[in-house]
């Protein structure tokens, strides 16, 4: 849930500190923490790949090359291809709104933006069934015109967009908030318009946060299970996304197939974590560079001030 901004100052000073735990306590705490993560995180992750390749490369490729799996890949790409751009545009607008202005009702708006995070994925699917399903609000109207939303692709796209909708906004709000508005306001005084401020100053400034937001949003969009499972109706070859395909194969005891498809999604998750790491690294690197520049600028100034003070 955290952004990609961290602080280094206190931890750097701590390295010189004389206070700390004994080597034994350190080792014990590290082993306990790693043991916990090993049991809960590493074991399942390794299992995905180990089970996928348990019978060698041949069955792995065969499982992925099935027609139904290929259809699922296609639908998943389509869904993410629609919902991610929508949420990126929204994320930029919402982050601009929240970080550039103070206005009445801002905290309420932020809470509403966060809502999909605290709603169960199952409920996220249900609300669209209640709106567009056969017995929903718009159900009769839609069926008269022979438009299918629930148990069809539009419902899957809507549910996915709902579930992943705060991700880009949250990430951008955190980064924009941390970076402040000085550069934007300077550009405004120099006569730049809103669009050119956004495109030439703000977006380049937040590019890593934006990239991580997009990648995370994409991974979640491709991997959403609960909400999509409620609205999809599980029509094979038509409304099956990759996670639903994993479920079907698993329930048919085709474990190699299920884990082969799962390994695709797990690789996407690992890629997401890698991008986050790179983004964090680049942000803290830039921060360090800026700090170094600032102290280099400050030193001659301080020196000349001293000189002036000495002068009679």
């Amino acid at each position: 849930m955290s952004g990609i901004i961290g602080t280094r100052a206190a931890s750097a000073r701590r390295r010189d500190s004389q206070v700390g735990e004994s080597v034994f306590v350190r080792m014990l705490l590290i082993v306990m923490a790693l043991g916990f993560l090993g049991i809960f995180l590493v074991a399942p992750l390794v299992t995905v790949f180990a089970s996928a390749f348990s019978q060698g490369l041949g069955p792995y490729w065969a499982a992925l090359a099935q027609d139904e799996t290929l259809d699922a890949i296609e639908l998943t790409l389509l869904t993410a291809g629609i919902s991610v751009p929508l949420n990126v545009v929204f994320g930029i607008a919402a982050a601009w709104l929240v970080t550039k202005y103070d206005f009445w009702g801002k905290s309420v708006l932020i809470t509403v933006v966060d809502l999909p995070f605290s709603v169960s994925p199952v409920i996220s699917g249900l609300i669209f069934v209640l709106l567009f399903g056969a017995h929903g609000w718009f159900g009769p109207w839609l069926s008269e015109r022979d438009i299918k939303i629930i148990f069809a692709v539009p419902g899957i796209v809507m549910a996915t967009t709902f579930v992943t909708f705060p991700l880009v906004a949250r990430e951008l709000i955190a980064v924009m908030h941390a970076q402040g508005n000085d550069e934007e306001e300077a550009a405004l005084t120099l006569g730049a318009g809103g669009l050119s401020i956004l495109l030439r100053i703000t977006l380049p400034k937040v590019r890593w946060g934006l990239l991580y937001g997009v990648i995370l949003c994409n991974a979640r969009a491709m991997g959403e299970f609960g909400a999509v499972s409620v609205v999809s109706g599980h029509v094979r070859g038509l409304t099956n996304t990759l996670p639903l395909q994993v479920e079907i194969l698993y329930n048919e005891y085709n474990f190699v197939g299920a884990f082969a498809v799962a390994s695709l999604l797990a690789s996407l998750a690992l890629l997401t974590l890698l991008v986050k790491k790179i983004a964090e690294w680049s942000v803290s690197n830039r921060q360090a560079k800026r700090d170094a520049l600032r102290s280099a600028e400050a030193r001659p100034l301080a020196a000349s001030a001293e000189l002036e003070g000495v002068r009679p």
């Binding site: 849930m1 790693l34 993560l37 995180l41 590493v42 074991a43 399942p44 992750l45 299992t47 995905v48 089970s51 994925p121 995370l216 991974a219 979640r220 491709m222 991997g223 959403e224 299970f225 609960g226 990759l242 996670p243 639903l244 994993v246 479920e247 698993y250 474990f255 299920a258 884990f259 799962a262 999604l265 797990a266 996407l268 998750a269 690992l270 997401t272 974590l273 890698l274 986050k276 790491k277």
Partner: peptide
């Protein structure tokens, strides 16, 4: 590496986590 892995439950699709945990 450990620091990066902490976010795995965020990025890993729940269905994948589900079948992996069941298998383990």
């Amino acid at each position: 590496l450990v620091d990066a892995l902490v976010d795995l439950p965020f990025a890993l699709p729940t269905a994948v986590a589900g079948i992996a945990l069941t298998t383990v």
